[in-house]
Design a binder for these strands. Structure first.
Lengths: 160, 160
DNA sequence: TTGATCTAAATGCATTTGCATCTACATAAA
DNA sequence: TTTATGTAGATGCAAATGCATTTAGATCAA
């Protein structure tokens, strides 16, 4: 964990230097990085304190649980979660060892595979959500009105 | 790096369950995590592509360069950057090996030390800022007006 | 077909992170 | 003082990550 992205001075920005962000842009960036790091850290700590695995595991379980038969291709998961290929491969290793997912043969592509969520994976996802939801509420819900949350969401949407 | 924080369903939120975030809150959270991860990844890639070390190094250099004599206590840096003590200790190791900072004795506390930025550290900070600034502009500046950036910044401020 | 190229996934090896502990000095209480 | 407790920083070891490469199957062109 790290990401602090503090800003460099913007003094020279006025003199028509190309590609220099405005102060508003720079401040927004700095705060985005800082706040997200701090919130994410807090949420991860809450999960760990409750005895749960990291958020990445939850993300995998949720993705899988939302798919038709509870299985997806690793490639899909990579794209969805923005995790590199080898990272996903090993995450699946660990979650398989823990019994929350299982590797299955992929009928449509001999190179590929399906990763399926197990019953205990579904159970874990539900239990984690209790804690995760409480953490989101504590760290975000109590600090923004619904209207503010909605506009934050909209602004962030422009950055995608 | 990972953080995807997808949301769990909020169906039950209406029935007065305690501590459940609203949909607005949950969506804002999900987008915050996702967008920040994706932007930070893009910026880090830009830096690496330009042959520079990770953003954390820049953060250290900038902090140091902004302080009176170019030095700070490691503890201060930890607090500023939200990095754990052992993480900072090792980051300083690496940056010292690379010649960008140096450890100095701390006159006011025999346990502690000062970390000072070197001339080549200052030079690196300036060169990195060129690339970093361009990246911020590309990934944020071109997507938000100054007014939007300012209100994003304000909303994020409420989350601290 | 056959060979060239592309894509899915795994893996060896080096680097980084996390955790727990340790050392050394500081501070405060007896 | 002496002793207990607290704080700054380093470090051994295990786990996770990043990078480069490999294997195996798909796809496409000749």
């Amino acid at each position: 964990m790290n990401r602090l992205a503090v800003l460099g001075m913007v003094k020279a920005a006025a003199k028509a230097a190309p590609k220099r962000p405005s102060e508003e842009t720079t401040s927004a960036w700095a705060r985005l990085v800082r706040v997200q790091q701090s919130l994410l850290g807090a949420v991860e700590r809450d999960l760990k304190k409750a005895g749960f695995p990291p958020l990445a595991w939850y993300d995998v379980l949720l993705e899988l649980s939302r798919h038709p038969n509870g299985h997806m291709r690793p490639v899909e998961l990579e794209k969805q979660m923005l995790i590199p290929q080898y990272g996903m491969s090993r995450l699946i290793d660990r979650m398989t060892d823990a019994g929350y997912v299982e590797r299955m043969v992929c009928p449509v592509d001999g190179r590929g595979q399906f990763v399926g969520i197990t019953a205990s994976g579904r159970a874990l996802q539900r239990k984690m959500w209790d804690v995760y939801a409480a953490a989101i509420q504590k760290h975000v819900g109590t600090k923004l009105s619904n209207a503010e949350a909605a506009s934050l969401c909209a602004l962030l949407g422009k950055l995608s």
